[in-house]
Simulated scan of single mutants.
Amino acid sequence: MKAASGYGRLVTVFGGSGFVGRYVVRALARRGYRVRVAVRRPDLAGHLQPLGTVGQIMPVQANLRYRDSVDAAVQGADAVVNLVGILSPSGRQTFEAVQAFGARAVAEATKAAGISRLVQMSAIGADANSASVYARTKAAGEKAALSAVPGAVIVRPSIVFGPEDSFFNRFAEMARFSPVLPLIGGGKTLFQPVYVDDVASAIAMAVDGETEEGAVYEIGGPEILSFRDCMETMCEETGQKRVLLPVPFGVAEFGAKLTGWLPGAPLTLDQIELLKTDNVVSNEATAEGRTLAGLDIEPRTLAAVLPTYLYRFTTHGQYDRHKMKTL
């Protein structure tokens, strides 16, 4: 890490109060950058300020649907990072509005402000021809970023895990109340889970200018695991013995049609569509060094990180399962 590589320079981070955002803000602050966190609700971003020194991190109001607020948020910045994304639509927060139109607004505002350094967070699986709206709009966001700022760096992570994640936490919470966990499509989909702090380090390096301009980096962890592997690992860590039930895609889609419109639905049709494609780093990215290894970042494993936050799902406390293993 470069402790003060960005000393005094200003970075605007859109979506900096979210799961990945708080780690990106911290990584940038540690490098000496001043960080302007552009969010819809600055009053809910107070948790970020202790991540830096006094006055180093400043939340400001911005909404990607309103271009004036985006223009104001990037004024005077040396670099811009766009982390805004959603897993399922809600009200006016649609995939198109957030991940396509919103990304284009950020990119065009960055160009208009004369800023040449833009980092756009996308996702492995972004594809303009995908049957998934999520994947198509992620691809549209990438295209918009590179069209407006040709030197923009695209960062595509696989499933991101960490204390606030919506993957392992979600299924561990589900296991608290259900003796059965569904394995959509038989649980064969492959993932390359990547620790959120490693993703943040890659993004901070892009802001530092240590990445190739105009390149797409695919960010995955050290292990390729199936959906079933992930569920077994989660159950092992929490001590929850659950039946892992294979569910064909057709059955899952039928269930999603009945419940997918409900707030907090287990899975939507679009998320099921995503599960039909493996979510791992491509051979091309590996060969060309557009990965964590290519950035000299040693990714952390699930085994090293999951125990630090999934302990809250154990039945008898943080140390009970480990104590039983030694008896």
Results as ranks from 00 to 15, higher is better:
residue 280 V to C: 11
residue 80 V to G: 00
residue 217 Y to N: 10
residue 222 P to A: 11
residue 24 V to G: 04
residue 308 T to D: 06
residue 308 T to H: 06
residue 278 D to N: 14
residue 236 E to V: 12
residue 298 E to A: 15
residue 173 E to T: 15
residue 151 G to N: 09
residue 71 D to W: 00
residue 170 R to E: 09
residue 226 S to A: 12
residue 129 N to W: 11
residue 47 H to E: 07
residue 315 T to Q: 14
residue 3 A to Q: 13
residue 247 V to E: 06
residue 257 K to H: 14
residue 51 L to P: 02
residue 276 K to R: 15
residue 146 L to R: 03
residue 187 G to V: 12
residue 239 G to Y: 02
residue 292 L to F: 11
residue 37 V to A: 01
residue 299 P to Y: 09
residue 24 V to P: 04
residue 174 M to R: 12
residue 151 G to A: 08
residue 93 Q to V: 06
residue 252 A to G: 13
residue 228 R to W: 07
residue 208 D to M: 08
residue 58 M to G: 02
residue 168 F to Y: 12
residue 270 D to T: 11
residue 326 T to K: 15
residue 245 L to K: 12
residue 77 A to V: 01
residue 78 D to C: 02
residue 221 G to D: 04
residue 292 L to K: 05
residue 246 P to F: 14
residue 102 G to M: 07
residue 99 Q to P: 05
residue 324 M to I: 10
residue 142 E to M: 04
residue 16 G to C: 01
residue 92 R to Q: 13
residue 112 A to L: 07
residue 109 A to V: 01
residue 165 D to P: 02
residue 62 A to Y: 04
residue 312 R to Y: 10
residue 122 S to K: 00
residue 146 L to K: 05
residue 47 H to K: 11
residue 166 S to Y: 06
residue 85 G to R: 01
residue 104 R to S: 09
residue 82 N to F: 01
residue 156 R to I: 08
residue 154 I to C: 02
residue 191 F to H: 08
residue 89 P to T: 11
residue 30 R to E: 13
residue 43 D to G: 14
residue 104 R to D: 08
residue 264 G to Y: 07
residue 242 R to W: 09
residue 193 P to Y: 06
residue 131 A to N: 15
residue 182 P to L: 14
residue 108 E to G: 04
residue 230 C to F: 07
residue 299 P to G: 10
residue 79 A to P: 00
residue 257 K to L: 14
residue 33 Y to E: 00
residue 323 K to W: 14
residue 305 V to C: 05
residue 273 E to R: 14
residue 267 L to F: 13
residue 215 A to L: 12
residue 135 A to P: 07
residue 71 D to L: 08
residue 189 T to F: 07
residue 54 V to K: 10
residue 116 S to K: 08
residue 217 Y to E: 10
residue 326 T to R: 15
residue 161 F to A: 03
residue 246 P to I: 15
residue 37 V to D: 05
residue 302 L to C: 08
residue 173 E to W: 14
residue 82 N to A: 00
residue 63 N to A: 02
residue 236 E to W: 11
residue 180 V to S: 12
residue 151 G to K: 03
residue 289 G to Q: 10
residue 213 E to Q: 13
residue 67 R to W: 06
residue 165 D to L: 07
residue 120 Q to H: 12
residue 245 L to Y: 12
residue 61 Q to D: 05
residue 47 H to M: 03
residue 183 L to E: 08
residue 193 P to W: 00
residue 194 V to Y: 03
residue 125 G to D: 08
residue 223 E to P: 05
residue 5 S to F: 07
residue 137 T to W: 12
residue 252 A to H: 06
residue 165 D to A: 08
residue 211 T to Y: 01
residue 27 A to F: 01
residue 152 A to W: 05
residue 196 V to T: 05
residue 219 I to Y: 04
residue 292 L to M: 13
residue 259 T to H: 12
residue 35 V to P: 00
residue 23 Y to A: 04
residue 222 P to M: 12
residue 40 R to T: 01
residue 325 K to E: 14
residue 53 T to Q: 15
residue 11 V to N: 02
residue 225 L to C: 06
residue 180 V to T: 13
residue 116 S to G: 12
residue 160 V to T: 09
